[in-house]
Design a protein around this nucleic acid. Sequence first.
DNA 1: CGGATCTTTGATCACAGTCAAAAAGCGTGG
DNA 2: CCACGCTTTTTGACTGTGATCAAAGATCCG
Lengths: 262, 262
Amino acid sequence: MQTVTASAKPETLPLFQDISEKERDELIKAGKTRKFAKGDMLFMHGDTLGSFYIVTDGAIRQFRETPDGKEITVGLAVRGDIVGGSHIFESFKAYQWSAGAAENTIVLEYPIFWFKEKVKSHGALALNMLAALSQDTHRAAVDAEHLITFTAAQRVACFLLRLCALYNFSPKGFDLPYSKTTIASKLGMELETFSRTLQKLKEAGVEVKGTQVAIRDLHQLECFMCGHCSISEDCATIDTLHGRGCSGSEQVVIRKIKGECL
Amino acid sequence: MQTVTASAKPETLPLFQDISEKERDELIKAGKTRKFAKGDMLFMHGDTLGSFYIVTDGAIRQFRETPDGKEITVGLAVRGDIVGGSHIFESFKAYQWSAGAAENTIVLEYPIFWFKEKVKSHGALALNMLAALSQDTHRAAVDAEHLITFTAAQRVACFLLRLCALYNFSPKGFDLPYSKTTIASKLGMELETFSRTLQKLKEAGVEVKGTQVAIRDLHQLECFMCGHCSISEDCATIDTLHGRGCSGSEQVVIRKIKGECL
DNA sequence: CGGATCTTTGATCACAGTCAAAAAGCGTGG
DNA sequence: CCACGCTTTTTGACTGTGATCAAAGATCCG
């Protein structure tokens, strides 16, 4: 079963921007479109390097296992994100983590060596790839900061808002796109902690029932976390939510947050 | 005062590998060599973007401050590492963190826009830049994993070994190159915790007196941490220490670790 | 020698991890 | 449509690690 929204237009992927239409089409045609059902694996930690992937629709969870059996989620790639991209340019001969679909997902697949050659001779593509990797690095740094400074509740709150920004969900009500186990792992906390934390967030105006989430008071939620985060001024999530203006009056309220609450 | 070892040969930097000698020299000449004394700042969070830097010798600490006054160390760049590199390819107009010298340091400075053009037209340089950023991402992922799965003691142990690998220190005795405050911050723990942790590590065969560190039993220390880390098989630190063979017999012992201890 | 800064030590506490068990959800097949 | 088994999630009780606050020691440097 593979129910995936057909919104998956490769030509709008960030990696292919600022490239002549002709070349872009060539690149897109060279990629193999593949569909993965929830739970399917793209590759396993230790497999010999072969392809890298661009997520067109859905989400890919990248993870690793420690010798004592604990699973670490390294990243959660959504539309536009690259999976295994960093492998192209390092000297590893095998994948450094496993990757599997967190929901039904469509990706574009490229042979690593072919793509590396393309990048070498194609300046604009190289810049886009650099931008993608830079973004990864930046995100990783923010996640690390949150692990250090945020409580579990703050990390969950931040994640929920990011979900809204990424998937264009209305904060007033949406469904979690992945299992709670996946989310907990991505946030670096135990499932039990995640579960309990969702209860606590009721006090901050977040209602959760099963997979359905409703954020009653966006303003309150932002006060709860953004005031403790060092990137507050340049947070992509917040900017997206504001820019979108998730319903007239709300927008105005949110705009003021950055200054007013500590 | 600027006592820096003169070993700072730019032509051996990874960023300039696989580039024709002529072009490499041109690149190196285009960069401005700058010296920073311990504590000097390269740029501040929020400054308008201007330059990026390649560390030639010494170390640069990159950090950010949360609104409630907590300082987060985003990264610690040593010889060969790039500072502010990711800024070149993202759309930010200002630095996303501050950067200052953790010890006396020499860097090569390049104007961001000039370098971006160079990368666009120069395939090999683009690949090197991509490799550098990939490595950053990879490191960030490992650090995040350690924050989640390692105890403070394990993180400190891992850091000490990495120091040896990076600076070519003998594990049998070396001096910490940065202040304990800096190290604690980089490891995402409080100074007090770091201090206490160093005491505890005595049980694992690590002697610390002031800034002097001596690792009595490398084998024991690796058992203490690597067995719980998911990258064990591909750890650059361990590989470096082994490859170097930090004294005949030790080398043999260490080699066996990967398999034998859980 | 005096005054910074940096580090250590002490006592206390809260957050999140762990183990264990119950409950809810979900797909399959009778 | 319900019963069954399996997976996912929730709830409960307990514990340990590391943060916090506070104060004393070191160390560095003018």
